[in-house]
Write a protein that binds this DNA or RNA. Structure first.
Length: 603
DNA sequence: TGAATGGTTGGTCGC
DNA sequence: AGCGACCAACCATTC
């Protein structure tokens, strides 16, 4: 019998160690093994992502390729520029491949939770206890067989030319798909240049080498690692930040969560008394990740949206998503939204631009844009502010922005955390509201974090730095800053910081009252009244005025975008169902290459 | 069954 | 400075 010829298809799991599928492939003692990555046009054009995020995945690919080369100089990561569903069948014939392996599938948590989504950390922990110990990571292989002949004498499927959602970022045309094996025919990893994108601005870089180095550094500080308590880490810390920054590595698969988990466990056991425990500890953070994954696995595609999601509370937020098909509602979010309130839209655009006039919020949003990363509690602050604690804008708008800008964007965690913060699922104490003034001051009295990210305020007295609208003229003159404008038309003027876009305490009480009424009405995303629009009657009867369709200059879809530098935000992509993981209609192969937990396929 | 309890990460005031 | 009571009062789980 002929020896197997294996295609090892990397999707997001861009690491060599801790891959049961790769181990299984090597156990077959293949004659040839091709480590391939499919660069999918669907992903490149239809998932909106900043250059920071593109850079990260290119880093991960390069690092993986280098690691493969070290094991076998004849091999590397072979990148093919075509969608997997059209490419793989052709590759099987052309390369005479006999096996395709990808990653593993895990729905055990859901099964142990009675088939229901894990909606709290205790549920996750109970389910995890029933399953047993987290498996130890598998070490990287110490050798890899040669790849076989790699003919590509077949047609490359045409890349779709419509709706390039990343067009606003590109300063040149995208050339990624000009040829299947890249410009030199050597299956090279893409470059930002080829993608037509400008350079990344983030200092955070990807790849397993960096990830492992960072992991070692964290675990070497035994006290830090063993006593880590997430709620006590500062969102205002920078250089260095207060948390591990390992999330983007895990997102792209450059770091194994199991390796992270077991390294943390070892440090905790060695440390003994005084070590922190889940959910606040380092391992606890990984449990939250699994909680969101399992919730998504159980709920399916409505998980990342409100419509049709029985676990998400319906709140008539401003700027609701447009749904392509409200009848079926499945994967229906088009990425566009209704501008029911021009005022709320302006608040949203100022939030996204980091020009709300609330310095702590603006500092965080600017860090997000430049670095692609902000501290978890900083995310809480800006998320609460956009939704239930300020703007009363739909959490799906915020989730869209995070998806675009975060280098560690993970669909399940992103949607879950937005639901948490907006009190629509996982968490419900809406009267606990973050203050853009007090919350930052709790961590950073002097406002050093603001001084870094909002340089126009860097000389302002600490007394006023969180609320410059209260500063005396003398204090402003001394700091060389003027507080004026709406944050959109003059956002880049030297020495000018915008006026606060509303009275926070006023908005806070309006929002809390509105949340109270919405909770009393008690609709969820799958209720008929939500699908057919009759929810509105219920809210009107309750005397609600802070809701979709009411507020600002009136009930209209035609906002005023005359000074809108960012109106492409109306067409943000969503790839929200990235977590179906091959469940349901056998659709694993249709998903973008950045998805996690791909089902293992047998040929 | 109704009350008690727990829920990773709020703000403010007063001592 | 750090702690506890209070604010107005959520949900799901447990006993």
């Amino acid at each position: 019998m002929a020896k197997p010829r294996v295609i090892y298809w990397f999707r997001t799991d861009l690491r060599l160690h801790d891959s049961p599928a790769l181990k299984a492939a090597l156990d077959l003692e293949p004659e040839a093994l091709w480590p391939i990555f499919t660069w999918d046009p669907h992903y490149v054009y239809h998932v909106k992502a900043s250059p920071n995020r593109w850079q990260y995945i290119l880093d991960c690919q390069q690092d993986l390729s280098d690691s493969i080369r070290k094991l076998n100089p004849n091999s590397k990561l072979f990148v093919l520029r075509e969608a997997p569903q059209t490419l793989l069948p052709k590759l099987f014939v052309a390369w005479k491949a006999t096996h395709l392996v990808t990653l593993w599938d895990s729905d055990e948590v859901v099964a142990k939770n009675g088939g229901k989504p894990t909606m709290s950390i205790t549920q996750l922990q109970t389910a995890g206890y029933k399953i047993g110990e987290v498996p130890k990571p598998i070490s990287a292989p110490d050798s890899l067989p040669d790849p076989g002949e790699m003919p590509i004498d077949f047609e490359q499927a045409q890349a779709p030319k419509t709706a390039d959602l990343n067009a606003p970022y590109r300063n040149k045309a995208d050339k990624t798909y000009n040829s299947l094996a890249g410009p030199n025919g050597d299956f090279a990893i893409e470059t930002l240049e080829e993608l037509g994108l400008p350079a990344a601005t983030t200092p955070h870089r990807g790849g397993e080498t960096i990830a492992l180095k960072q992991l070692n550094k964290i675990m070497a500080d035994e006290k830090y690692a063993a006593t880590f308590r997430k709620p006590e880490t500062s969102p205002a810390a920078f250089e260095p930040q207060s948390t591990t920054l390992l999330s983007p590595h895990m997102h792209f698969g450059a770091l194994s969560p199991r390796l992270f988990y077991w390294r943390a466990r070892e440090v905790v056991e060695k440390y003994g008394k005084g070590a922190s425990t889940p959910p606040e500890s380092l391992t606890g953070q990984l449990l939250f990740r699994d909680m969101y994954f399992a919730a998504q696995a159980a709920i399916g595609s409505p998980y990342t949206q409100t419509l049709n999601n029985p676990y998400v509370r319906f709140i008539p937020w401003h700027l609701p998503s447009k749904h392509a098909d409200t009848e079926t509602g499945m994967s229906a979010i088009s990425g566009e939204y209704h501008v029911d309130s021009p005022q709320a839209d302006k608040w949203f655009r100022r939030w996204k631009a980091g020009t709300t006039g609330f310095p702590f919020v603006d500092a965080l949003m600017r860090q997000l844009r430049i670095e692609g990363w902000i501290h978890h509690l900083g995310r809480h602050m800006v998320a609460c502010f956009l939704t239930r604690g300020g703007c009363y804008v739909h959490w799906e708008r915020g989730a869209d922005v995070f998806e675009e800008l975060l280098i560690d964007h993970e669909p399940a965690s992103n949607a879950g955390n937005w639901q948490w913060l907006s009190c629509t699922a996982f968490f419900s104490q809406y009267f606990r509201c973050y203050s853009p003034v007090a919350f930052g001051q709790k961590w950073d009295k002097n406002g050093d974090f603001i001084r870094k990210w909002v340089p126009e305020l860097r000389h302002l007295d600490a007394k006023y730095i969180y609320e410059p609208w209260k500063a005396t003229q003398a204090a402003l003159d001394k700091a060389g800053v003027r507080v004026e404008g709406d944050g959109l038309s003059n956002s880049h003027k030297e020495g000018v910081y915008p006026e606060a876009m509303f009275d926070f305490n006023e908005r806070r009480s309006v929002c809390i009252s509105a949340m109270k009424r919405a909770f009393k009405i008690g609709l969820h995303g799958n209720d008929e009244a939500v699908k057919n629009g009759t929810w509105k009657v219920l809210f009107e009867e309750a005397g609600e005025t802070e809701m979709e369709g009411i507020g600002g200059a009136g009930d209209t879809d035609e906002g005023d975008y005359a000074d809108d530098a960012d109106h492409e935000s109306h067409k943000i992509s969503r790839s929200r169902d990235g977590g179906k993981h091959g469940r349901g209609k056998g659709n694993a192969i249709k998903q973008g290459p950045m998805d996690r937990h791909v089902k293992r396929l047998k040929n």
